[in-house]
Write a protein that binds this DNA or RNA. Sequence first.
DNA 1: TCAACCTCTCAAGATTTGTTGATATATAAC
DNA 2: GTTATATATCAACAAATCTTGAGAGGTTGA
Lengths: 120, 120
Amino acid sequence: MEEQRALAGFAALSQETRLRIVRLLVKAGPEGMAAGAIGEALGGASTSRLSFHLTHLEHAGLIRSRREGRFIIYSAVFATLAGLIAFLMRDCCDGHPDICAPVAAALSCSCEPSKDALHG
Amino acid sequence: MEEQRALAGFAALSQETRLRIVRLLVKAGPEGMAAGAIGEALGGASTSRLSFHLTHLEHAGLIRSRREGRFIIYSAVFATLAGLIAFLMRDCCDGHPDICAPVAAALSCSCEPSKDALHG
DNA sequence: TCAACCTCTCAAGATTTGTTGATATATAAC
DNA sequence: GTTATATATCAACAAATCTTGAGAGGTTGA
């Protein structure tokens, strides 16, 4: 991932509504959610506001959309999330994995609900 | 990590100069770098501008500072980086690790220079 | 104490970003 | 084909953010 793309990604995640949308879609997985359902889960954002943020996120490559009948379904793009993390941590610690081990630990923890020390 | 802290973190990372500073300090490791050295590496940002962004990053908890004589040394706070990633990916995929595995792969790759598929 | 050095603070102006309300497009049902 | 549903677009205003330039705080060594 190049710098400009990473900047767009972090900027997209730096706004309350958008961060909530991404987290919602990360939980939802590949199936995704309809725009309306996202708006409901977020508790009543106006459609124009929601659309503004969804467009912003899609343009940043963090989410993607597909049409299903009247609905537009959004889902998280995990490759972009992975790219952001890799960009941030690339060449970390000058090749001393022990230093950034906690970062890796935090992530594997998220993927395995049983070890929930960091879930609270 | 709570939402407001995560938002502050992503906002801090969403600006070109600040993202470069963080990546520089991630590479530098716990030893860190003096403010002046950071400014030089970034290629001539004015001291007030540099100080503005360093303060912003420190306030977001992404970096920390210590004084050494005339110099102020900044270093990355890896726990905060870990927290951001964990916050973003928490409860991902409704408990199906296979879906977000690429994210974990991207990170472990960063920590082990030998597997450099994502380093280019 | 003085001079040199390193870094921070402040105020003003320019730029970017987010919200609102009205309107437009697309699909589905009758 | 008309109406209802779902979502996107646009323009205007409000608010947050970044840069610049001037100046001030500490620290060191003579």
